[in-house]
């Protein structure tokens, strides 16, 4: 009886050695929930890109002429601004990991500034288009252009608001060098907005 008990204890000990029940460190940046949101948004943009490709093959002349009448300077400037804002967000993450909360918030303010400049340039671009007589009704190219870019415009708007929210949370001490998942969630979401724009830019402004 005794020997049976001791053998059970031995096997139980060796079992616990073989399997490590401690929670493993996640290799997903941020939470899984934000990645569901990001993949859903990327799918939404993918549908828009499919519409773009289909409209292009059916209307090659309109899609050849369309980009020539758009403001390439505004499109390029906004691409540079979006990439820079993403860079600022990466630097903010690096700063918080280094326990430099003030610096992290400053980098994020830089990203918010980029978001606001983006929105101003886009609004100017829409006005400039209107003065050239380019509206959603002009032809299918501009219909696709307005639908896709306005959708992205909204993302930059609420993304900027999200950045301000995480700055507030940094300043109130909620995020620390070790606990800042919310900030990572916002960062990867902002990068998704950037990814959408770097795809939109060549499709609508560059490729004919």
């Amino acid at each position: 009886m005794n020997s049976l008990t001791s053998s059970t204890i031995v096997s139980s000990k060796s079992f616990s050695k073989e399997i490590d029940f401690t929670p493993k460190k996640s290799n997903i940046p941020g939470s899984i929930a934000i990645w569901f949101a990001i993949l859903a948004e990327m799918s939404e943009f993918a549908i828009m890109f499919i519409v773009y490709f289909l409209a292009k093959v059916h209307n090659p002349e309109l899609f050849y002429e369309g980009p020539t009448r758009l403001n390439t300077l505004a499109g390029t400037t906004n691409t540079l601004i979006m990439l820079t804002s993403s860079f600022f967000v990466v630097r903010a993450i690096m700063a918080i990991r280094d326990n430099k909360r003030k610096q992290s918030a400053n980098w994020l303010w830089g990203a918010v500034g980029c978001g606001i400049i983006y929105l101003i340039i886009k609004a100017f671009e829409y006005q400039w288009n209107a003065s050239q007589g380019l509206t959603t009704e002009t032809n299918i190219f501009y219909g696709v252009y307005y639908y896709v870019t306005f959708n992205h415009f909204l993302h930059v708007g609420w993304g900027s608001a999200g950045l301000i929210w995480v700055i507030y949370r940094i300043n109130t001490g909620i995020y620390t060098s070790t606990e800042h998942e919310g900030l990572i969630n916002m960062a990867v979401y902002w990068h998704m907005i950037d990814l959408a724009w770097i795809t939109i830019f060549p499709l609508l402004y560059v490729i004919r």
Binding site: T72, T76, L80, L83, T84, V206
Partner: peptide, 16 residues
Amino acid sequence: WIMLIILTLFSAYMAE
């Protein structure tokens, strides 16, 4: 970041 900026400027050149 600098590489991304250069690639974007190159794209703009191609667009022009």
